[in-house]
């Protein structure tokens, strides 16, 4: 649990530093922070086996760091550096690291769901006891491909776990304006798979629920749907003009911040000083990651040969 806490603190500090950099005009393109919902990505990835797969969304920082990606290379990717996980080609929404099975943030809403489902099919066909975990939002839950993926996964008993990260908003639209059903886990019944709603701000609860669903999938018993209720306290993205999330609602969730909850639980067992030291080290690790990544070079352009339109010819001009 201390390790999960550490990874949540890593993620939070990453988000805070990104917020500062954005204010200073030093980021490029929108950045989708996950402050307040770190327990979902971190708890879920902690439950994965080393060779499982995970797909995530445009808001994937907790999954990136939860899965153990090197913060320096994550930061480098966010700032478009050559040393980033994708050499600066992907940017913060599209970080992928095939080596750790972190099969990408995805900025087409809903696309992370069939993506994991396809990986699960591949594992089933290859006869490997590996599971794919799809992380997606409450907004993504309303897409057609979400329904289609769940239907096929249940039908073929695919080893996939659907983790719905419910932060109450799809971009700026409240979930009550997106679905007539408040509790989306009830949909699982329609596919004949288990579904439950859990406290997404309790990292241990997320870990437990995802671990059980992964085991079930690994045993060949098919998919599950887990709806983790959480909240996005910093708005949709750095380009969000705000005004749609009530202050009282934000305050209520800030009081239930996953890091506060985990810190309190850990302090009881390990002592506050120990937890504090761990947090300080995590923040220092992120600061060092920023220092190193920002000093890294920008990538040099090279054309993408497989995209070239003419067989056996040098790349075309613009």
């Amino acid at each position: 649990m201390l390790e999960m806490h550490r990874r949540m603190v890593l993620t939070r500090h990453l988000e805070e530093r990104l917020g500062e950099m954005h204010k200073a005009g030093r980021t490029r393109g929108p950045i989708h922070r996950c402050d307040g919902q770190e327990a979902v990505g971190v708890g879920a990835t902690a439950a994965m086996a080393h060779d499982d797969f995970v797909t995530t969304t445009h808001r994937g920082h907790a999954v990136y760091l939860g899965r153990g990606l090197d913060p320096r290379r994550v930061v480098a990717e966010i700032f478009g550096r050559e040393t980033g996980y994708c050499g600066g080609r992907g940017g913060h929404m599209l970080v992928g690291d095939a080596q750790t099975g972190m099969m990408g943030g995805n900025a087409i809403v809903g696309a992370s769901i069939p993506a994991a489902t396809g990986m699960a099919l591949s594992m089933q066909l290859r006869g490997e006891a590996r599971v794919a975990l799809a992380v997606f939002g409450d907004g993504a839950a309303q897409t057609g491909i979400c329904h289609e993926s769940m239907n096929i996964a249940a039908l073929w008993r695919l080893p996939v776990v659907f983790l719905l990260e419910h932060n109450a908003y799809g971009l700026t639209v409240h979930h009550s304006a997106q679905s007539s059903v408040p509790d989306l886990s009830v949909r699982a019944a329609g596919y004949g798979m288990p579904g439950e709603t859990i406290d997404g701000n309790d990292v241990v609860a997320v870990y437990g629920a995802v671990a059980a669903a992964l085991q079930r999938a690994r045993r060949g018993e098919g998919p599950s749907l887990i709806e983790a209720r959480t909240y996005r306290v910093e708005g949709f993205s750095t380009s969000d003009m705000g005004g749609y999330q009530p202050d009282a609602e934000i305050a209520e969730w800030r009081a239930r911040d996953p890091i506060l909850l985990a810190r309190a639980a850990l302090a009881d067992r390990l002592g506050a000083a120990h937890v504090e030291r761990c947090e300080t080290e995590a923040r220092a690790e992120i600061d060092a990651a920023f220092d190193a990544a920002l000093a890294d070079p920008m990538p040099a352009f090279a054309p993408h040969t497989p995209s070239a339109p003419h067989a056996g010819r040098a790349y075309g001009v613009r």
Partner: peptide
């Protein structure tokens, strides 16, 4: 003809400006 280079649009500024005309 002036058009985008035939490849995905990269994120980093040094790359993107080579793709978009």
């Amino acid at each position: 003809r002036v058009a985008a280079r035939d490849m995905p649009i990269p994120y980093a500024e040094t790359l993107e400006r080579e793709v978009i005309p």
